[in-house]
Design a protein around this nucleic acid. Structure first.
Ligand SMILES: [Mn+2]
Ligand SMILES: [Mn+2]
Ligand SMILES: [Zn+2]
Ligand SMILES: [Zn+2]
Lengths: 154, 154
DNA sequence: TGGTTATTGGTAATCATTATCAATTAGACT
DNA sequence: AGTCTAATTGATAATGATTACCAATAACCA
């Protein structure tokens, strides 16, 4: 089932902006912000509106064609919809995919020891990535710099 | 070492607004937003400014007297600074503390299989809490309602 | 090739957080 | 207890991110 079919089967249309936005998110593993997606989409479609990017990221996530993840510095989007975990480098801000560990054991233990019905869980690792370990540590970003720029997208 | 001593040893002062803000966050396990803390602080200090609440939550988190956590609906604050995990009920939005599982094994495995140096990790569980399992499911909140109100604080 | 209607671009509105600044006051030291 | 000094406050403006609105456009179906 292609993305176009998924959309059309729900009465949605695969417009040019929507297709390019989906392509941009799917063709990277950097977990871009909406602003970053906007910058990249404009290279192919200079007249696109920032509102269109926001609208489509939200819509495409609702339709399951990409994943919306909240990170410490705001919302990010992930074209990898498979089950996987993430590692955030606290030095450079990059977010890496890491393979998920088997989930069933954790869910069983959680469900049997509490009144909670666990549908899913998420693991986030924090530390320093290989590149940053080899390099002298730079001064950390300010709160505002983290939110606005985030070193993972040059 | 009391909170007042921690602050004074770093040239900071324990003012009345700051003490009340810290008390409010420490005396609940609902992981309140800044807006929610503001509402509760105003009951004791009606003339407090929202900016003062934001400033102090940030400062107190920087000093390690409370923890700042990003959730799907925005930033939240946790008076429990010990190691623990969280369960988010997708039906009512409440965030519950859950005991942490032993950390060393996970960190060792992660560090040995990748180039990442893991300082810490975070687990978030998602599902339905006991109260919501017993009760008929209500209609889900809108995006805006989730961000602003969040059912966990009535 | 039309006709319907989802979608777009442009822009205003909203929301959360941060910045600014004159007035206040906690804490240290007489 | 009174004085001093700098941290802090309340009020408000500014900022950044996201959402709402609406007339114009264009995707898709018959
Ligand atoms: Mn990912
Ligand atoms: Mn907690
Ligand atoms: Zn790094
Ligand atoms: Zn619940």
């Amino acid at each position: 089932m292609t993305a176009a079919d998924t959309l059309r089967s729900r009465g949605l249309r695969l417009t040019r902006p929507r297709r390019i936005i989906l392509d941009v998110v799917r063709s990277t593993d950097t977990h871009p912000t909406a602003a970053s997606v906007y910058r990249r989409v404009r290279r192919k479609l200079p007249r696109v509106s920032l509102a269109t990017v926001h609208r489509n990221l939200r819509q495409l996530a609702t339709q399951g064609l990409l994943v919306e993840r909240s990170a410490a510095d705001g919302m990010r989007f992930d074209g990898n919809t498979g089950v996987h975990d993430h590692f955030t480098c606290v030095a450079c801000g990059r977010i890496y995919d890491v393979p998920a560990r088997p989930r069933s054991a954790v869910r069983r233990r959680m469900a049997s020891s509490t009144a909670f019905e666990v549908f899913d869980y998420r693991m986030e690792f924090y530390g320093r990535c290989g590149a940053c370990r080899r390099r002298r540590t730079r001064s950390p970003l300010t709160r505002h710099q983290r939110r606005t720029y985030g070193r993972q997208e040059p």
